[in-house]
């Protein structure tokens, strides 16, 4: 077992883990943060996308021990409080950007840095940014609409 100390959603955690444990499994099973979903475990589906030091990455392709000393943000860290959603989440709600919801956390965590770097994206840029996240419900049109709506909401702020 190896001791890791990392910050997740601005809270510091210390745990003893097997070196082989994936960060995605660590978040779900050790910390109980089951908002990060696990789909394909080989980096294709994007369901497990989290922010690692502020940038989107696949948590299924990083070992928990590699996150020692780093900062991770999961979907649970987006909303400012219990009663309010993040404008990106609110936009997914309003524009029907989710159906079964399995892919949603990964898409949100992909779009946070995307909208930070591209506050006024074109539809084409949104579609390109979405290409690393699969939606088995194929609800892409509404997801694109939701991201577009979010970019408008977030620019107004």
């Amino acid at each position: 077992m190896t001791q890791v100390t990392l910050t997740v959603n601005e809270t510091q955690y210390t745990r003893d883990v097997e070196p082989r444990m994936l960060l995605s499994d660590f978040l779900r099973h050790e910390l109980g943060l089951t908002g990060t979903h696990v789909g394909c475990e080989h980096g294709v589906c994007g369901a497990c996308t989290i922010l690692f030091d502020g940038e989107s990455m696949r948590s299924c392709l990083i070992f928990a021990v590699q996150a020692d000393g780093h900062s991770v943000t999961t979907v649970e860290g987006l909303a400012p409080d219990k009663d309010n959603l993040h404008p990106l989440q609110q936009s997914f709600w309003e524009a029907h950007g989710l159906q079964c919801g399995y892919c949603t956390p990964g898409i949100l965590m992909t779009m946070i840095p995307f909208l930070r770097d591209n506050p006024n994206p074109t539809e084409d840029e949104i579609r390109h940014a979405l290409s690393g996240n699969l939606c088995r419900c194929t609800g892409y049109q509404h997801i694109v609409d939701a991201v577009k709506l979010a970019s408008e909401k977030m620019r107004e702020k």
Binding site: G43, G46, T49, F52, E55, S56, M57, R58, L61, I62, T110, P113, F114, A129, S131, G132
Partner: peptide, 9 residues
Amino acid sequence: IAHPQIRNR
């Protein structure tokens, strides 16, 4: 090369 999430790592 792949997607931004992959290129970040």
